[in-house]
Structures are given as C-alpha cells and as structure tokens.
Simulated assay, not measured.
Amino acid sequence: MNHATRKLCLILSLALAGTAAHAQDAAAQTAAASEPAAAAATSALVGAPPEGKGQIVFFRPSKFAGAAVGFVVREGETDLGKLRSGNYFIAAVEPGTHQYTVHSEAKDVLTLEVEAGETYYVQGSIAMGFMVGRPNLSPSDQAAFDAAAPKLKLSK
C-alpha cells in the first residue's frame, strides 16, 4: 500500500470512530430522555393510592408458557382479581398485614405489610405442576412492572 492510501485509510478510520462515538452519545441521550416518559406512562397506569390506603399492583408479564392458565388472587374469601398472562390489576387496601393466596393443585400465600400512601408490586407467574400449572406470587418492584407494562392490559 502506498503512503497516500494509508493516509486515506487512517482518515476514514478516524472519521468512522467519531461517527460511532457520536451515535453512542445520541443513543444514551435518547435512553435518558425516555426514562421520565416511561415513569410517566407507569404513573398513568397505576396512579396514587387513595387517601389513607396503600395499593398493590398485581401483574403477570406476557409469556407464552402458561398463557392459557389464569388464576384468581384472593384475600381470605374475597376475590381481588384474576391474573392471566399479560394482565394486571390494582387493589387499594387498608394499612396493615395482608395475606394473598392463589391456588390450583397447590396453594401459594404471600404476606405483605402495607403502609398508607405506598404502592407495592406483586408479580404472578406459573410454574410446572403435576397436572396443571402452579400459580406463584412474589414481591416485585416498579422496574419490573415498567419493563412489562407495554404488553400489559388491565384485568377485567
């Protein structure tokens, strides 16, 4: 390769490296700008708890495995809502200790200590059981809900 060709290759390499760095900076700025938008979208889905109460967002991310199986979340004898794949619902509750149950062939119980003005997140899932899927409730967080939110629908 002659000297002029090497010089041209070096110039092109530097130009491409600068363009790649600029593209990465632009992508980082776009991602940072979209975070408040995602938080606002979640706030629109969830909102604030009623005065003097806490709220629990029960959600089940959309997945193919176990999609045909839904389960009812209960507190004592009261049905709070049904979770199917890709659904969520919100329960406003009095402050204090609450036990939420789901069951099919097996029973799962989640105990939460709820404070007034706070929002809690609970993720539902299905594990393999002997005859049918085994529902499970586990504590979660807003980040997990935010990640699943674009594919979630409010449970009926």
Rank of each mutant, 00 (worst) to 15 (best):
Q123I: 04
L112H: 08
G117P: 07
D108W: 15
G133Y: 03
T101W: 11
S140N: 07
Y120F: 07
L137H: 10
T111E: 13
I90N: 12
A106S: 14
H98W: 02
Y120S: 12
L137Q: 03
V122N: 05
V93A: 02
K82G: 12
R134Q: 06
P135G: 02
S140F: 00
K107W: 04
E113M: 00
S138W: 05
A106N: 07
P139R: 14
L80V: 00
G133H: 02
S138N: 14
S104P: 01
T119N: 05
E113R: 10
T119W: 00
T101A: 12
S140I: 10
Y120D: 04
E77W: 04
V122W: 01
A91M: 15
T119R: 13
T101N: 07
G129Y: 12
G76M: 01
G86A: 06
S85D: 01
V102K: 04
Q123N: 10
G86M: 06
V122H: 09
I126Y: 02
L80R: 09
E94H: 09
E105P: 01
L83W: 12
Y121V: 14
V93W: 07
T111I: 05
H103K: 03
N136H: 06
Y88F: 15
N136W: 10
T97A: 07
S104H: 09
Y121E: 06
H98T: 07
T111M: 01
E118W: 01
Y120A: 02
F89W: 14
A127E: 11
S104E: 15
V93D: 06
M131I: 14
Q99V: 10
F89Q: 09
E118Y: 03
D79T: 14
T119S: 09
G76A: 08
H98F: 04
P135E: 08
K107S: 13
E115D: 13
V114S: 01
A127K: 14
Q99A: 15
F89H: 13
Y120T: 11
S85K: 06
M128S: 02
E113Y: 00
P135Q: 11
R84N: 10
G76V: 00
S85N: 03
G76E: 11
D108F: 13
Y88K: 12
T78I: 11
G86I: 09
L137R: 11
G124L: 06
Q99N: 04
N87C: 14
E118I: 13
G117C: 04
P95S: 10
